[in-house]
Amino acid sequence: MGSWQRIAMVIMLVLVTLLALNGVSALDRFGLLLLRDDTTYALMGPRWFAITVRDVTALGSNWILIFLITSVCLILTIAQRVRHAVTLAIMAIGGVILSMGAKYIIDRPRPDLVEPLIHVYTPSFPSGHATMSMVCFLGAALVLTSVDGPARVRKAVITLAVVMSMFVGISRVLLGVHWPTDIIAGWLLGALWVDMVYRRSQLFKSRVVSAH
């Protein structure tokens, strides 16, 4: 990610945060009601669609992500890539702190325009599922593909990680538990944090190599 891209993401994150602080925007209403019945506000589509959405959102649940990060860190440690394991652990732990800290500082209420398909109890902004799925999926993809290998494979793995996080985030809006700006902020926050930690890790590696 280049400098101008990081600056653009920071600006977008600030703008989305301002939208969230000012209440429900037209973007939030439009996104939340996009795939819902105009009268009942029920999620449109066959019954299996709602079930599938709940399955997709589970990919960003705490236990799934804890299992993913723990497993990858353990594998990296066994493979004697301790620095990579530590980098991924810092990404995950820092992501939780950033996400939960922002939630309780901003304290945005959950959507009340529709009946949610699942029950949640924490504040709405930013989405923890969107933030942590981006942190964990993208972070794992970057760390696992950081060794020499085909560039196309690295791009494919990173793209898959981002797409998975996007599906998780979208599922939260479809379930009626997040505003779209919650999701956008979560994605941006997660991506910025991963980028910062990964670049710091690469800088530390280069300094160690230079010292030797």
Rank of each mutant, 00 (worst) to 15 (best):
D112H: 10
A141Q: 14
M12K: 13
S25D: 02
S3K: 03
C136Y: 00
A92K: 01
K155L: 10
L68T: 15
V16F: 05
A151C: 09
L138T: 07
L43F: 07
V120C: 12
H119I: 12
S206F: 02
R200M: 12
V120N: 03
L144C: 13
F204S: 07
N62I: 14
W193H: 15
P123V: 01
T122S: 11
V147Q: 15
L138R: 03
T40N: 12
F125V: 01
R152S: 05
I11G: 01
A140D: 04
I7L: 14
W4T: 13
H119E: 12
G139W: 00
V157R: 12
V135M: 02
L144E: 00
I64K: 06
G95H: 14
L175D: 07
M164F: 12
T131D: 01
W48E: 07
L65W: 06
A140C: 11
A26P: 00
S133P: 09
W48Y: 09
R200F: 08
G94W: 01
H84M: 14
R36W: 02
V162I: 15
L174F: 10
R152M: 02
L160K: 08
Q5A: 04
N62S: 12
M100P: 04
V14T: 14
V114E: 13
P180R: 14
M134W: 07
V53T: 08
V16K: 10
F125M: 06
I97Q: 01
I118M: 07
W4Q: 15
I183K: 10
C136F: 00
V114Y: 10
